[in-house]
């Protein structure tokens, strides 16, 4: 599903260029639940942003399915993000003035789906994460775990090829963390390819495979 061939990334800010990713190779088969582990500042988010086409890279090749993700036009990048990828963030990133249901429906807005159909599909996915009773609530009225579930429903609503989660439990307590992990595992069991970035080993241990990122290189896997 995902194939990285010698991915290189350097941040050029100020006087000293920062070589963050140094020729990464990685293959993620369809349906895998992969964890990317590494200490803070090791380049996990940078890698995930490249996978999410939110950021570019300097060298190598990134294949998403059978499409080479390189020098995409604005339009194409937006389209790939919308149709192929689902994002889950540590800080949820829900729009505070939209209800849970409307937040879930938002990606479909950028597909030009009618409002009625959007809300119908959003309700379906909100139900799948067990929050149909909360669909009319604003994010401010939800707990952290509930917010992340709304975010997961939003990531799934477009039926993407890959779900990308950057420290999805980083802002949650241990009980809620386990609930979210259980949800991710269930979604994975239904066939979704998921890449989780984390620096916690007990998260990584629950994933099918873990790769360790250190100083811009993969150093072993489990």
């Amino acid at each position: 599903m995902i194939r990285l061939v010698g991915i290189d990334k350097t941040y050029r800010v100020g006087a000293h260029p920062l070589h963050v990713l140094k020729g990464l190779h990685l293959t993620v088969p369809p349906g895998e639940l992969l964890a990317i582990m590494g200490s803070s500042g090791s380049g996990k988010s940078t890698l995930l942003n490249i996978l999410g086409i939110l950021d570019g890279y300097d060298g190598g090749e990134y294949w998403l399915g059978d499409a080479l993700v390189k020098d995409l036009s604005e339009r194409k990048a937006a389209d790939y993000r919308n149709r192929f990828l689902g994002f889950v963030f540590q800080s949820f990133h829900l729009l505070p003035f939209k209800t849970a249901l409307e937040n879930v429906a938002l990606p479909l807005y950028y597909q030009g789906v009618s409002r009625k159909e959007r809300l119908r599909r959003a309700a379906e996915h909100l139900d799948q994460v067990g929050l149909s009773d909360w669909s009319g609530h604003l994010p401010g009225e939800l707990s952290g775990g509930q917010k992340q579930r709304v975010a997961i429903a939003r990531a799934l609503v477009t039926r993407p090829r890959v779900m990308l989660a950057d420290e999805p439990t980083g802002a949650l307590d241990s009980v809620t963390t386990q609930e979210i992990m259980d949800l991710l595992k269930r979604v994975n069991a239904e066939g979704m390819t998921i890449v989780v970035v984390t620096h916690e080993s007990d998260i990584a241990e629950q994933c099918a495979r873990t790769v360790f990122l250190k100083d811009g290189r993969f150093e072993g896997e489990r």
């Binding site: 999410g52 939110l54 990133h93 990606p107 950028y110 597909q111």
Partner: peptide, 16 residues
């Protein structure tokens, strides 16, 4: 800023 970044991640183009 965060909202706009999020919208872009969800499929909004610069133009939109």
């Amino acid at each position: 800023t965060a909202e706009i970044g999020l919208r872009r991640a969800l499929g909004a183009t610069r133009v939109s």
